[in-house]
Design a protein around this nucleic acid. Structure first.
Length: 597
RNA sequence: GCGCCCGUAGUUCAAUGGAUAGAAUUAUGGUUUCCGGUACCAUCGAUAGGGGUUCGAAUCCCUUCGGGCGCACCA
């Protein structure tokens, strides 16, 4: 039962019957609120071929449909817009369908749709020299949610994380720790491991800046000073030592990273995010060189006199790009070529997605172009899920300047807000401490995830710590609240011995009931749309709409005191159905919903 | 300099080329003894400027202005 599809076909039949046009591709749009009806067919495009006025066409079709279609009860015409209203019996069938389907809107995880794809999605990909901040959260929530959405849509999904665990930035923290740490550990300092490493990264920067200042004062240019400062020289030496496998350096590196991973694990657990596969750059950074060889022999790449290897992409509007240095070492994009090949060999996924910020748009354009030229079959299935940065009112977040919003701190703050609000509401006085804490976490993450996911991923967004994370209006807790409220209704129904039940087709619905059913009917399409667009924001918007529409229904009609027992049963069933759909939609966002709050 | 992205109520976000551009927030006023008021209802308020394409443009094209990002033998 796919109502919109049915209505489309009815309109097609009508076009054939009264206008003589065959195989007319019909698209419907939702009727605007201010007009009567639910589905609108626009007749302007037909006007030219038929040489009839749009309103006349709409009138003919409407007349035909209301007389002949078992699905349409009424119509109205405004200019070239034909607004159609389905019969109540049709709405009730729609609700029946949703109510009897435990997986309404999506598939259970692992239930692959016929023709469903295998998708490998890489996200999170942290650096091991600093804790996660707000920007990482957007990345994590996006990757996690898209995974869930694709999975519900019947794709097989592999979640991968590529940890950036090597390079000059890690050496910086290592050096600062070696010089200033005096044997301090996360335990002894009471810091979470990732914050501990981050502290030394900041220490490095302080000392480094001072050294630059000193050298500049001694007469060097700022550029020279930046190159010659003792600590940067030392850090670079450390990187070389690491690459040569120097035992002491490697041991320190392992120790620092281990601390960081302990910290990350805790944060990941807290925000409910996990991976099927973790790659480490220390394992993959040398990959890709064999593909450079392959590219050279295929004539895709070329070598300059100094021995460096390049690809010329100027005929595609891109530039010439270095893929191997003159000294034979690889660059960032070489690694990516190699890692992509590795992923494909390991998982054979026809679709590979990278959740990476939009400052790397160009990089991925180049990467995909290279893969294509190398003749990789998977090149066309590569997709850069590019998302915008999260800005603060003060501007861009910069970790070196300390203007980042720390993820752990933010979550703790949100939990505190959740606790305050919940206590004000006073509905959970009988909760055990554990239970209450779980609820606060659920609400905190609900607010945060919803906030970061409700905006179109591609767009840059603003985060105002004071105002942005609210619990009223278009927020996660608002939707969670609606769910809890409905569950309360359902519990009361059970107590009163009222069962949710759908009436026969002759029942006349109230407009508020129709509106809710109408929205419910759209859910499976919304999930499919969100999967197609890789956009959790479509799900957020839907969940909010549904909650809001339900609240209007709830405010306008009494559930239990209606004299008609059929109305009571219907409204209980409808409520339960909305609660399930809200829970399902929020699960796709990685957000849990409470029974009570 | 070259390339890519973005300018929508005071603010934060919506709107497969369709109707009188929707929400949230802010402000003000209101909600029938009843099911959970983190709710519901009402009022105020916006497509950066200028051209063009189209029956129809916030959306597509050109242009001006304003903002962001990218153009490393960094990652």
């Amino acid at each position: 039962m796919h109502l919109e599809q049915i209505i489309k076909e009815e309109v097609e039949k009508a076009i054939h019957a009264c206008l003589g046009l065959e195989d007319q591709e019909v698209t419907l749009q939702p009727t605007r609120r201010e007009f009567e009806g639910y589905y609108t067919f626009v007749t302007f495009p037909l006007s030219k071929t038929l040489k009839k006025a749009p309103a006349e066409i709409a009138g003919l079709l409407g007349e035909y449909l209301s007389a002949n279609s078992p699905y349409i009860s009424s119509y109205n015409v405004v200019q070239g817009f034909l607004n159609l209203s389905p019969r109540d019996g049709v709405w009730i069938d729609v609700l029946k369908n949703a109510w009897s389907d435990a997986e309404f809107g999506g598939r259970r995880s692992g239930d692959r749709r016929p023709g469903g794809r295998k998708v490998l999605i890489e996200f999170s990909s942290p650096n091991t020299n600093k804790p996660l901040h707000l920007g990482h959260l957007r990345n994590n929530f996006l990757g996690d949610s898209v995974s869930r959405i694709l999975s519900a849509n019947g794709d097989e999904v592999v979640k991968a994380c590529l940890v950036n665990d090597r390079g000059i930035h890690i050496c910086k923290s290592m050096l600062a720790y070696k010089e200033l740490g005096k044997g301090e550990t996360p335990e002894s300092s009471g810091l979470k491991g990732d914050h501990f490493a981050g502290k030394y990264y900041v220490e490095f920067d302080k000392v480094y800046k001072q050294q630059i200042a000193d050298l500049t004062a001694a007469g060097q240019t700022p550029e020279e000073a930046a190159k010659n400062a003792p600590w940067i020289v030392e850090a670079q030496k450390m990187l070389v030592d690491w690459e040569n496998g120097d035992p002491a350096t490697v041991a320190l590196w392992k120790q620092m990273n281990q601390w960081v991973y302990q910290g990350f694990d805790e944060t990941y657990r807290q925000i409910g995010i996990s991976f099927d596969k973790t790659y480490y750059e220390s394992d993959t950074y040398l990959l890709g060189k064999d593909l450079v060889e392959e590219g050279l022999s295929k004539g895709v790449f070329y070598k300059k006199e100094d021995g460096s290897v390049w690809i010329d992409l100027t005929d595609e509007g891109l530039d010439q790009k270095l893929v191997l240095r003159a000294n034979g070492t690889s660059v960032y994009i070489t690694q990516d070529i190699g890692t992509t090949e590795l992923k494909y060999r390991e998982y054979g996924a026809g679709q590979m997605i990278w959740v990476v910020g939009n400052e790397q748009d160009y990089h991925f354009e180049v990467l995909f172009a290279i893969l294509k030229r190398l003749g990789r079959s998977y090149a066309d299935g590569c997709y850069h899920l590019s998302y915008g940065m999260v800005d603060l009112p003060s501007g861009k977040m910069k970790s070196r300047e300390g203007t980042v919003v720390d993820a752990d701190e933010l979550i703790a703050q949100m939990e505190h807000t959740a606790e305050t609000r919940t206590k004000e509401l006073g509905k959970i006085e009988d909760f055990e401490d554990d239970e209450a804490k779980r609820l606060y976490r659920m609400l905190a993450l609900g607010a945060l995830k919803y906030f970061l996911l409700k905006v179109d991923p591609k767009k840059r967004m603003l985060f105002n710590p004071e105002e942005s994370i609210d619990f009223q209006g278009n927020t996660g807790p608002f939707v969670q609240y609606t769910h809890a409220r409905i569950r309360s209704v359902v519990r009361k129904a059970a107590q009163n011995g009222v069962e949710g039940k759908l009436p026969d087709a002759d029942y006349e619905l109230k407009p508020a009931e129709r509106d809710v059913i109408h929205l419910l009917s759209q859910y499976p399409d919304r999930v499919a749309d969100a999967a197609r667009a890789y956009s959790p924001s479509l799900i957020s918007i839907y969940a909010y709409d549904l909650a809001k529409t339900y609240n209007q229904f709830y405010a306008g009609l009494s559930i239990f005191s209606d004299p008609d027992p059929r109305a009571v049963s219907l409204r209980v069933a409808l409520s339960e159905c909305v609660a399930r759909t809200i829970a399902h939609a929020f699960a796709l966002l990685g957000i849990e919903v409470p029974e009570r709050m």
